[in-house]
């Protein structure tokens, strides 16, 4: 299929982007890496009148570490994240997760801002961001706004972005000493969106669970933070019983939607398996 015809603009400054967004309203779409957007155009699933290519904007690309924070510009590609030694050191969860994002050819052009804006519930970054309590930085003609990841992902493909705004960066706390991260997912083929996945993070003292964060992908309309399971672990010894109880508690946290080949019950089962494996790795 061929994409329906559209106009194309490549502004050089943010105010120009906001101006175009204001003038074209719903008819305009931001184009970043195009790895999701162009496919949807070619499937004629959407037909914007204008694509605003933001890849020429200065200042939106790159990874910056300062004051215990890792700031990743919206235009930073998956590949840059994958190859960054700073990410490996300060954000091991993202470093583990990015290897599961699509294939190298797609990672070469797809961007972190695009992933956040798209808000696919099976995507890796959003779950990591929720697990690490990251902040999404948004900008519009009225200025900048910061939204917690857990509030940013509203529903299926729905975010806190309001018309006229774009994502400019995502900010994470750099990992602190004694903390550990584990990212696990189950995809039938390398590079596919996962059936279910888990971004896990905790303080690792080897004997007790503390500050455990468990965020699932593919298990709901947004990344799901497993509050009950997390609470059940807090301060408890790293024992088989405790892990079993946490797995049990997931029933309260997750009601995963079935997909084409996996039932909701099977997904819950798989989420429990991943939880067991993640907790084992975290408590080593």
């Amino acid at each position: 299929m061929k994409a329906p015809s559209f106009a194309y603009a490549k502004p050089g400054t943010l105010p120009q982007v906001f101006d175009l967004l204001e003038r074209h309203g719903d008819g305009a779409k931001i184009l970043a890496g195009g790895q999701s957007l162009l496919a949807s155009l070619n499937l004629r699933l959407s037909s914007p009148e204008l694509l605003i290519d933001i890849t020429g904007l200065p200042g939106l690309n790159g990874i910056r570490i300062a004051d215990g924070k890792v700031r990743i510009g919206a235009l930073t590609t998956h590949r840059q994240i994958e190859q960054s030694s700073e990410i490996a050191e300060h954000l091991p969860l993202l470093a583990q997760a990015v290897r599961h994002v699509a294939h190298v050819a797609i990672r070469n052009v797809g961007t972190i801002g695009g992933s956040f804006a798209l808000a696919d519930p099976a995507a890796e970054y959003p779950a990591c961001a929720v697990a690490l309590d990251a902040t999404v930085v948004l900008a519009g003609s009225k200025g900048e706004r910061r939204v917690k990841a857990r509030d940013f992902f509203r529903s299926l493909y729905e975010t806190a972005l309001v018309p006229g705004e774009i994502v400019t960066a995502v900010e994470f706390d750099a990992i602190r000493p004694n903390f550990r991260s584990v990212f696990l997912e189950l995809a039938r083929r390398q590079g596919d969106y996962a059936i279910v996945g888990l971004a896990a993070h905790a303080k690792a003292d080897g004997s007790r669970f503390s500050d455990v964060r468990l965020a699932f992908l593919g298990a709901g309309a947004t990344p799901v933070l497993a509050g009950n399971a997390m609470a059940s672990l807090e301060g408890k010894p790293c024992s088989a019983d405790v892990v079993a109880a946490a797995k049990e508690a997931l029933a309260e946290d997750l009601d995963p939607p079935k997909d084409l080949t996996t039932s909701s019950a099977a997904k819950l089962h798989l989420a429990r398996v991943l939880t067991g494996r993640a907790l084992a790795a975290l408590s080593q």
Binding site: L186, R188, I195, T261, T262, S263, A265, A266, H269, L270
Partner: peptide
Amino acid sequence: FTPQRILEALGKA
């Protein structure tokens, strides 16, 4: 033989 079908065979889904 999807994971679903194998889990069903094992009585796990």
